[in-house]
Design a protein around this nucleic acid. Structure first.
Length: 133
RNA sequence: UUAGUAAACCGUCUUGUCGCGCAGACAUUAAUUGUCUUCGAGGAAAGUCCGGGCAACAAAGAGCAUCAUACUUCCUAACUGGAAGGAUUCGCCUUAGGCGAAUACAGCUAGUGCCGCAGAAAAUAUACCGCCUCGGCCGCAAGGUCAGGGUAAGGGUGAAAAGGUGAGCCCUCCUUUGUGAGGGAUAAAGCCACUUCGGUGGAUGAAAGUAAGAGCUCACCGCGCUCAAGGCGACUUGGGUGGCAGGGUAAACCUUAUGAGUUGCAACAUCAUGUAAACCAAGGCUUGAAGCUUGCUCGGCUGAACUUGGAGGGUAGAUGGAUUGAACCCCAGAGUGAUUUGGGGUCUAGAUAAAUGGCAAGAUUUUCAGACGCAAGUCUGGAAAACAGGACCCGGCUUAUAGGUUUAUUAUUUUU
RNA sequence: GGUCCUGUGGCCGAGCGGUUAGGCAGUGGUCUGCAAAACCAUCUACAGCAGUUCGAAUCUGCUCGGGACCU
């Protein structure tokens, strides 16, 4: 499987984003915060994602754009194991990453946190499926 | 050569690999997907401070209100923009000119308001103290007190005290040439007379003062008005006149002139979805309910497809708008210049929860440490590379910005 | 993206161009056996930079914060 990152893997529906904020669950690994929610997508994509940096925390547009790009890159390189697991368990998820720090980070730090979060989320999901069974 | 100032321009680069966005070609699929190729952030993309394009409002028309602008001419699609010029102020050089900088630069002589504190007085100079004088009273006198009149010489203040400067008795004598002596002239008040009650005349008198000074008079400058010459014009130069009335403040109200219809691409159009211009109740039919039209009025428009209440449902996403344009580059011409005319060439981001990134290697510049070297410098290792990210599009303005290049100019050093 | 509003001590909040009110809080005192309350005193401000004006929190321009509305 290739490490491409097409538009179909991005979450663009405003309705689902509102749903995540209303009903989603939260995982924190400072400075990254993840909100997620199990959702059925029309195009059968198992995983859709949003990257967000609040204007309140990071003032400059250049820095916001850069942090989003770094987060996207880290997610692109490290999501595959998690995605394969989801396909195996026949689930679909909507993810919403929020950068909650005030500093301008470098790539390795972001990558580490994203890896950690994906791993933890994976264990949580597999636990839930076992309980359902 | 070095440093300063001003203006203009540039504003890290290369390769590999994994990825991203628009478009095109080819292949492929039920939908789709894959491969390749071209292109892919800025000088400010920012602030949203001006202006315009564009769009909607069944009119956008008039008046008022509101807002904006304000030396002149020109440029421009337009402008709180730019160019050239004028005036004022400041600085420098040196001299009656030159150079440079700054200027929200219409009108307080249309009206109204304000000018705290201090000060006698802050805009009609209403005389507070002082000075002079006349009268009454007290007192032996010196003087005191009360009331009236004159006088702008003096008065701490204040940002500012009424445009600025100068002049404002005469003769004789002395010589210590003055705040001297003598003589003459002169104001107001008071006194007497007359009176049309506004004043007029007369006598007395000689204090202060005729140094300085002044709000009084005169002259000049300045201001105003006006004429002539030059200039498209702002204005400049020169002459005449006689009003001296006119302190500051309009980024105080305001006046004058000019301009602005309002709202903004989340405008707006099309498609899709939706029984939804549907259902129930009340009001309301051309002698006109009600609504729309920019803040108001007039005017205009719609004309039962309307208004109010009830009950209830759906959409909330795709396309256009959207990138070929007052576009950019080169050459030639016009113009002092902003700019413009002609010719040739180029196509140069179009995303939509929003594309430029990650990793690796190298180069360039700066800087730090160490080594070598007399020095210029060389080598090794580390760090840093500004301000900052399109969101309908353009023209400006403003603000942020490491470093570099060019030109002009000023000073300095060296050589000739 | 667009259209607007706003900024005064630690907090709230007045302010007509002329010395920045007032309340709460803080600090020190009086009072009390000790506190509280009360009373007295005191500390700390006009977001920043320019301009207009004799004089600016106030008027004007620019910059920097904070907030609201429009889908």
């Amino acid at each position: 499987m290739k490490l491409t990152f097409k538009k179909s893997e991005k979450l663009t529906s405003r309705i689902i984003i509102d749903l995540i904020f209303a009903e989603g669950k939260t995982l924190k690994k400072y400075p990254v915060l993840l909100k997620y929610l199990p959702v059925e997508f029309r195009d059968k994509e198992p995983l859709k994602v949003v990257m967000s940096v609040p204007k309140r925390r990071i003032k400059k547009a250049v820095d916001r754009n850069r942090i989003k790009r770094l987060m996207r890159e880290a997610y692109r390189q490290n999501r595959m194991p998690f995605k394969e697991m989801l396909i195996k368990e026949e689930k679909s998820l909507a993810l919403f990453f929020i950068y909650n720090g005030k500093e301008n980070p470098d790539f390795t730090a972001i990558e580490e946190k994203i890896k950690l979060i994906l791993k933890e989320l994976g264990s949580v999901i597999s636990k839930e499926t076992k309980e359902e069974l």
